[in-house]
Design a protein around this nucleic acid. Structure first.
Lengths: 210, 210
DNA sequence: GTCTATATACGGATAGAC
DNA sequence: GTCTATCCGTATATAGAC
């Protein structure tokens, strides 16, 4: 089960070319707005070949979708379950990790969240969220800190929401943020880099509130 | 206290019935996945009538989309440009306002942000973001506070991103959050109500960081 | 204004040659 | 495995009766 970065398609097999193209188009436009013809063109192959390899648009989509979500979740579980790092270090690692990831794949969260809107039950269950997040070392550390009175006794999900919101939201809302801030792409990315430094500090300040 | 878009609207004209139905379906499923037949059925009218009033699916969508975005932006401009309130009060008002709005229309942000992904230029320009946000009293107060050294000298957009991220993100990611937190709908809404109290405090704590 | 019936286009999928 | 040509369901849009 080796993992290959999506930006370096070493595997030039037809199957992988199609998957790579599908990932690009699906992520940009979503399932319904994507035409299999566009995927075929992007992959530089014929439409019939797509069905030869993947049987149907929907089956191809399911594969891409599952992999995308695993990218999103899996990539962080290492950070979350590293028993050698403190809560503070985990937050810094998570911020760095996600901000780099989203810089490379800015469309990923909106894609995943949009497609999740309807079919919540089925797909989510395949991600093993329970083991990877609910029972993570990260969450245990939060709960312990609450018990010891080092952070206020609120639902840990608030911290997750704040952290993820501050990291992910700017990418999800980038068109409107660029517009109101009158930023071009590089200025936007510069702000995102700044956030690597700021977000951990902000989170820490929030956690000290009583 | 849930608002139901399908309730009989005050304006019972056919045109308004179609628009109301369109708002519901488009917001749930997005443009591409929506079928005009579904809108007609939801509106309790015939498919042909939809084209009689709005010429095409796309023209109908453009109207709904513009109104949705205006809902989202316009509703806040009153708060942002109230010259009688302090920065702190504006933040509290904004949090209350948006959390109530999103509780009633939880699908709105994902809809708007998804559909904005591709056509950024055109639609955004119609919202008068410049007058309503860029030149708002809210932003002026932030800039003044920075000059007076009361908050750190960072790009004001960081505060906007943090504030909006903390407010909006939980609704955008609600399926996954409910799953990892093992929350049902009412428990989720309970958390959202708690955030009315917490977010202003958190933001204030963040702003004091140097 | 509102309906039924239909034209037209588009997109997913397959047949069959190579 | 890969292509060209084509089928066929589905969805938008219109024609025309009432």
């Amino acid at each position: 089960m080796k993992k290959r970065p999506t930006d370096t398609p070493i595997d030039t097999s037809t199957e992988e070319k199609i998957k790579s193209a599908a990932r690009t188009i699906f992520t940009q436009k979503g399932y319904a707005a994507t035409r299999t013809r566009d995927i075929a063109e992007e992959a530089g192959i014929n439409l019939a070949l797509l069905n030869y390899y993947f049987r149907s648009k929907e089956k191809l989509f399911d594969i891409i979708m599952l992999e995308s979500m695993q990218d999103f979740i899996h990539s962080i579980t290492g950070v979350f379950n590293d028993e050698t790092t403190s809560l503070k270090e985990k937050i810094q690692n998570m911020v760095n990790h996600y901000l780099d990831m989203l810089t490379n794949q800015p469309n990923l969260p909106l894609f995943v969240l949009s497609e999740l809107r309807d079919n919540p039950g089925d797909l989510i269950s395949k991600l093993h969220l329970k083991e990877n997040l609910v029972q993570s070392h990260f969450l245990k550390q939060i709960q312990q800190a609450i018990q010891e009175g080092r952070i206020p006794p609120i639902h840990p999900l608030h911290f997750i929401m704040n952290l993820m919101g501050m990291i992910v939201f700017p990418f999800v809302a980038s068109p409107i943020l660029k517009s109101i801030g009158e930023l071009d792409q590089s200025a936007f990315l510069e702000l995102m880099q700044q956030r690597k430094k700021y977000i951990p500090i902000w989170i820490e300040a929030m956690m000290k509130v009583k």
